[in-house]
Structure formats: C-alpha cells, structure tokens
C-alpha cells in the first residue's frame, strides 16, 4: 500500500517542556506604515465624516464598496464617488467565541457581511453586529434583515473602519 514508508519523528509539547528535545526561540516585530492611495484614503476620510463611500463604474453601472480604482469586470477606471448610506442587509452572520490568536472570549462577537443599500447587489463589507441575540444568528433568522451603522461620536473618530462601532438591527427578527 502506498505511500511507501512515510518517515518523520513526531514530538509533543511535553518533550520541549521537560527538556527531552533541543530547540531555539526568537521573535521579531515589524512596523508598517501603509499609504492609502486615492481610493482607500478617501474611504477612511469618509468614515471619519460618518459617510460610507463607494465608487461607480459608468459602463456596467456597478457600485463598489470598499471603493477602488479599477472595475474588475470592465478593466477601466471607476468614475464617480457615491455615498452608499449606512443602512444595509445581512448577507451572512456568525457567532465568534475566539479572537484572532484563537484564545477564547467570554462574550461572543457577532460578525457579519453587510450589503449596503446604496451599493450594487452582492457588494458587502465585513463588520460587527451589536445588540443581537446569538440565537437569531444560529437560527439564521437574521439573514436578510435590515441593519444600520452605529457610529462613534465625531470627536472620537480617527478615519478607520472602527469609526463604525457596529451595525444594529432596524427591523424585527
């Protein structure tokens, strides 16, 4: 039976902890400063002003959020800035019990893809949902429901996707 003689020597964390296996350790930090270009820069500026901006391609009519330089379908520069509003519908949502490093969190987060009303169909953005019962996510009753952005107070905004605290339901589940 193939594969023939698969080799390798497994070990356990305890082999390291109890000194049976040699190892070496290091870590590094790298600092990045990203320039944002014409499109994402204006997107973040918009968020600071409480506005979600998209870009429209006049040839196919698509409105992209987040905004970008090129229409992927027409391969030409997009034409106009569009305020797509801060109301949308839940395309999909999940309940997260872990954070980015996989450690568990006490109060689960609700994460969603939200299709904004002023953008083309299927153009969603990633964000949190707030004041939502996890049961409504698990049952998928929340799919398709209308939600609206809850913004930080203007003086606390920094030009970040986190200038939106979360999206809240504006219709009954």
């Amino acid at each position: 039976m193939k594969p023939n003689n698969p080799m390798g020597n497994p070990y356990r964390m305890s082999d390291i902890e109890e000194g049976r296996l040699s190892y070496t350790e290091d870590y590094f930090e790298v600092w990045y400063r990203w320039s944002l270009g014409k499109y994402l820069g204006k997107y973040l500026e918009g968020l600071k002003n409480g506005v979600i901006l998209g870009r429209r391609c006049r040839v196919c009519g698509r409105i992209y959020v987040p905004p970008r330089e090129v229409c992927q379908y027409c391969f030409r520069e997009t034409d106009d800035w569009i305020d797509v509003g801060d109301v949308g519908r839940v395309n999909t949502a999940v309940v997260s019990y872990i954070q980015a490093d996989r450690t568990r969190i006490d109060k689960p987060l609700i994460i969603a893809v939200i299709e904004l009303e002023g953008a083309s169909e299927g153009m969603g953005i990633l964000h949190r949902l707030g004041d939502v019962d996890p049961e409504d996510v698990i049952s998928r009753r929340i799919f398709g429901k209308k939600v609206k952005a809850v913004w930080k107070p203007p003086e606390e905004r920094t030009g970040s996707i986190n200038d939106i605290l979360y999206f809240k339901l504006v219709e009954e589940v």
């Binding site: 990045y32 990203w34 997107y43 973040l44 395309n91 996989r102 990633l126 996707i161 986190n162």
Partner: peptide, 24 residues
C-alpha cells in the same frame, strides 16, 4: 490592513461566514 484587519479578524470568521451563507 485598511478595511478588515482593524476589526480583529480571525481566519475562521471568513470560513464560518461562507459556510453559513452556503447553508442559508
């Protein structure tokens, strides 16, 4: 790093979001 990382995104989020949409 602009539109998603600041939300503390975990890899499993996007798979869960896709799986749930597919189930729906």
């Amino acid at each position: 790093p602009v539109t998603e990382k600041p939300l503390g995104v975990n890899l499993i989020w996007i798979f869960a979001l896709e799986m749930h949409r597919y189930m729906y």
